[in-house]
């Protein structure tokens, strides 16, 4: 790897990370705005036009807040937990294929994707989300607070329980696409139909488990305010809290992007047909790639909207209900889904 290559990759990573964190910060604003609309309120509208700079103000506020570490906390892990959380959340974006490459320098193509054509792409995603639990569990444990610990434990149990169904939900897609490479999976959908139509049950399963994995309502038990104060981030303040908070939203965005990739055809514009022939643009031509970016992000953010919409519509599960759903409902369904998909492929091919 040349030095130019390295610099370019660093710049690329910088752009991506900042874009994603910005997106996560704006999702906080979106969350508040949508919550307000659903509750017939106005929502934040003080900072900037329509309150658009609210996110910056929030982040500045968090930077200026005192960073409080509880006296009895394990300060090393207390500091490490938010770093793990945000790092894992951001790393996931390295694998997500936003669209084709945008520029070519020294014969190497660069786009928003850090690691295109990673042949175990989807496994990497699963691996990353699994590591994500460490952040939450560590935060809960190191705070030395019963509520935080409870939140961390719940989170760990919940993530492990739902990871299983999530993995099985993906298997259907992988079986049909015949690849673990995310770009390959999108390419299959670009030429054919989106997998949401072939794998509707798989999509719903993945969506539900994604809600649980990202600790979103109605599965937000780890931070259930009425019982656990704030859950694992009770003892966090200032930018450490900010990092945990941003990591949550980054995870939502990552999950949405992966769902867009796996089930909604990634950057594909039209569900059942090949875009390039319909739009009359050469495959991987710059206009189509740019359009692809827009389409991909639109799909991802549409799913983010659904995440938020669900949060302000559905009440929280009870812990036993959560576990029942995960193990007794979702897991059997996902197993049946895998078997039926396998049988379908066996008989149709």
């Amino acid at each position: 790897m040349s030095l130019t290559n390295l610099i370019i990759i660093l710049v690329q990573a910088g752009i991506l990370v900042n874009l994603m964190l910005m997106a996560a910060a704006y999702m906080v604003l979106a969350e508040r705005k949508i919550a307000a609309w659903i509750q017939n309120r106005v929502g934040p509208d003080r900072v900037g036009p329509w309150g658009l700079f609210q996110s910056f103000s929030d982040v500045f506020k968090l930077y200026l807040k005192e960073d409080i570490v509880p006296a009895a906390a394990d300060y090393r892990f207390h500091a490490l937990a938010p770093v793990i959380a945000i790092a894992v959340a951001v790393t996931t974006f390295a694998i997500i294929p936003f669209s084709g490459p945008l520029v070519e320098i020294d014969g190497i193509k660069y786009g928003l994707v850090m690691a295109p054509n990673m042949n175990i792409g989807i496994l990497a995603v699963l691996a990353m989300t699994s590591v994500g639990v460490y952040g939450v569990a560590l935060a809960g444990w190191s705070s030395n607070n019963k509520y935080s610990l409870m939140g961390g434990l719940r989170s760990a149990a919940q993530m492990i329980s739902y990871e299983l169904s999530m993995g099985l939900a993906i298997i259907g897609v992988v079986l049909i696409a015949g690849s673990l490479n995310l770009i390959e999976i999108i390419n299959v959908q670009t030429k054919g139909v989106w997998f949401i139509f072939l794998q509707p049950v798989g999509f719903i399963l993945f969506f539900v488990t994604a809600l649980a994995e990202t600790n979103r309502a109605p599965f937000d038990l780890p931070e259930a305010e009425p019982e656990l104060v704030g859950g694992y981030h009770t003892e966090y303040s200032g930018m450490k809290f900010g990092l945990l908070y941003l990591a949550e939203y980054a995870n939502i965005l990552a999950s949405s992007a992966i769902m867009a990739t796996l089930f909604l055809g990634g950057w594909d514009v039209i569900p059942f047909l090949d875009d390039s022939t319909i739009l009359g643009l050469a495959p991987n031509s710059l206009p189509l790639v740019l359009l692809g970016h827009v389409v991909f992000l639109s799909k991802a953010f549409a799913l983010v909207f659904v995440f938020i919409w669900i949060r302000w519509s559905l009440p929280r599960f009870r812990y036993d209900q959560l576990m029942n759903l995960g193990w007794k409902v979702l897991l059997p369904i996902s197993l049946v889904n895998v078997i039926l998909t396998g049988l379908g492929i066996l008989f149709l091919q």
Partner: peptide, 23 residues
């Protein structure tokens, strides 16, 4: 799932109603 869809449609409809609160 049907009940969840019902709930979601209710909140979606709320989004397009005028606000109660004021600036």
């Amino acid at each position: 799932l049907p009940e969840i869809a019902r709930g979601l449609s209710l909140t979606l409809r709320q989004m397009f109603k005028p606000t109660f609160t004021r600036r």
